[in-house]
Nucleic acid binder design. Sequence first.
RNA 1: GCCCUCAUCGUCUAGGGGACCAGGACGUGGCCCUUUCAAGGCCAAAACCGGGGUUCGAAUCCCCGUGAGGGCACCA
Length: 496
Amino acid sequence: MTVRVRFAPSPTGYLHIGGARTALFNWMFARRHGGRFLLRIEDTDLKRTIPGAIENLMAALRWLGLDWDEGPDVGGPYGPYVQTERAPLYRQWARWLVEHDKAYQCFCTPAELEARRATQQAAGDLPGYDRRCRALTPEQVAEKEAAGLEYVIRFKMPIEGVTVVPDAIRGDITFDNSQITDFVLLKSNGLPTYHLAHVVDDHFMAITHIMRADEWINTAPLHVQIWQAFGWPMPVYAHLSLVLNPSGKGKLSKRTQAFREDGQEVLVQVEEFRQAGYLPQAVVNFLANVGWAFGEDREKFPIEEAIPRFELKSINPAPARLPYAKLDWLNGQYIQAMTPLELARAVKPFLDAAGYEVNPEALLTVIPSLSVRLKRLNEAVEFLRFLFDDRPLALTAADLTDKKLGADGGLAAYRQARDLVAAVEPYNLEQIEAGLRQLGERVSSNGKAGPFLGKLRLAITGQPVSPPLFESMLALGRQRVLGRLDEVIALMGKTP
RNA sequence: GCCCUCAUCGUCUAGGGGACCAGGACGUGGCCCUUUCAAGGCCAAAACCGGGGUUCGAAUCCCCGUGAGGGCACCA
């Protein structure tokens, strides 16, 4: 039997990082077993559906490299893959349940239900439907229907006994049936709730394993009962642990912002990770380490290598916060592993977005120094600002002065550096470095080039943090370097 | 309130009765290297929630606490 799994998001928001992990685990499982991974859109909540969500979901999944074998866009033998397009199917099977005494029509209005819930709550009673329509006689039902009253279809949950939910990660979970009310299967607008829709779809789409988030555990007994009512073979359920807020308080939600304990906001939507300059390989690698481990004490790995090792039984059932700091480290590792050309290409869109005109040659010059420094691609913008921004340096003479550089604090040294830059031939890394290093050693009281080169780097880039001096000079070009040195000399000359 | 799940360094995890005075990674601290910032190298601090059992032996199995999370919708 071929393994068939699905990722079934509702288009009520953009793909968030927790959802991405659920998708990843399903995808890995499918790939591990040579099975099929399908994408199904669960859009039965018309009120909460937001425009553009499906496109965002698909784009995010694609960006992560989680390709689906069947889905709304690619089709497949079990379509359609959008629930609102399958509405007649759910109605048909809801009716079947009513006809077989497994479900019933309920005419209670939302207002009535809410009022009763309020009463229950006030009395400290167990909230939940009181099942009054379950006792309706066929005549009463016919009467209400004839009167044109709207109704929903509710499942006839067994009143007594227990329901066992087999879970591939947690083992059997037993629920008292008295804890579960008669849930709505079909809403009055004719669309199904999740409970009915997922069972019908997973059956007709021949799903073999359902990997979904922990939050579904409590309704799983209902789902087990629905499978049994239909008499359909039940797929394997595996409830993945929740991804918590970084603060550890509450689950990560796609609709709320998330904060760390120190109050700093963290990214939640997959799209935000892309915009912040994270690499998809890094994000996927990162996610694979939350709730699952590669083994052999290995944290960094291409996902392809993880696939053959992926097992349901090795999934950790404990809820986890996302270790965001580790993502930064991983991303940095992946950036370091890129070739200069790859990195240049990856960084370019971020520079473009900042309005920086990229001179390919200059960019390539500083790429090697970027490689070990960047944690996120978007950091290149700040780091390379000096290359694109010729505004006068926001520095004071004091910033550029060092006692070790003589009585004038270095003014003479800068003048010599200027002459050197003007004359050096050819203008390349080796020549620039040889000349300036020699100069630095000569002008510094301790005989080391360090102090002078440090100040010179600051003078030329104007940034406390930048690529190393010589690369920066090369990328800038001789004329611009001379211009900046003139600026510095003028500045220091004014305030001796 | 009721029900369900979970529980190893700050965080993510390895561990599935003796191989564990508990391993790795990130982060943190120190040192080295160094023109800034990084990267890199070396070193360090840092955990089995508590209490009972079971057993010759428990991080590993059971029970009870406690804590954290989830659920109790015509939302998914």
